[in-house]
């Protein structure tokens, strides 16, 4: 599975001639019938400072870049208005407990094993946009984050 994802990431890398961003281990949480939303998770690494500004997918009517935060034991999920910062050379995890690509208004059930195409739009510091086509495989609904959620994911500041 992992090698498969890496191969896809490599393909994604090859697709854009000047790709600055590599995508590792992309996956989507499978849904039950009539469930209207889910999340896509992955690890992004940009060679130069960049920003993930938007995403799209044929399986969803609306796609947003979200951040999850726990504030006084209340879970808040918000779209990042100016996208997700990708510092140069630093891997950014989109995983449960932190960031995710939110797939909303789903057009159908995402079944385990489905390959979900997702288009990521990354903007460099020079304002140039590039597009990455990735394929995220749907993992079971009950797939846990690889690391303990108590680690707070990408943003330790959420803890109190």
């Amino acid at each position: 599975m992992k090698r498969f994802a890496l191969t896809l990431a490599a393909l994604a890398f090859a697709a854009g001639a000047h790709a600055q961003v590599t995508v590792k281990d992309p996956w989507v949480r499978a849904t039950v019938p009539q469930q209207k939303a889910t999340g896509a998770f992955m690890q992004l690494t940009a060679t130069k400072e960049a920003r993930l500004v938007s995403a799209a997918s044929p399986v969803a009517g609306v796609v947003e870049i979200h951040e999850m935060a726990m504030v006084d034991n209340v879970m808040k999920m918000r779209a990042l208005p100016s996208g997700l910062e990708l510092p140069a050379g630093k891997a950014v995890d989109l995983k449960p407990g932190g960031y995710h690509v939110m797939l909303m208004d789903l057009k159908g059930q995402v079944k385990e094993g489905d390959v979900v195409p997702v288009t990521l739009v990354v903007e460099g510091k020079d304002g140039k946009k590039e597009t990455l086509e990735i394929k995220a495989t749907a993992r079971p609904l009950n797939t846990a984050a690889k690391t303990d959620p108590s680690q707070g994911g990408a943003h330790g500041a959420m803890k109190h």
Binding site: M68, M70, M75, H100, T143, A144, P149
Partner: peptide
């Protein structure tokens, strides 16, 4: 709520 991609699955995975 089921449209929740993050904490709700995590809570139910933990419960299991």
């Amino acid at each position: 709520f089921t449209q929740c991609p993050d904490v709700c699955p995590t809570a139910l995975i933990r419960a299991a």
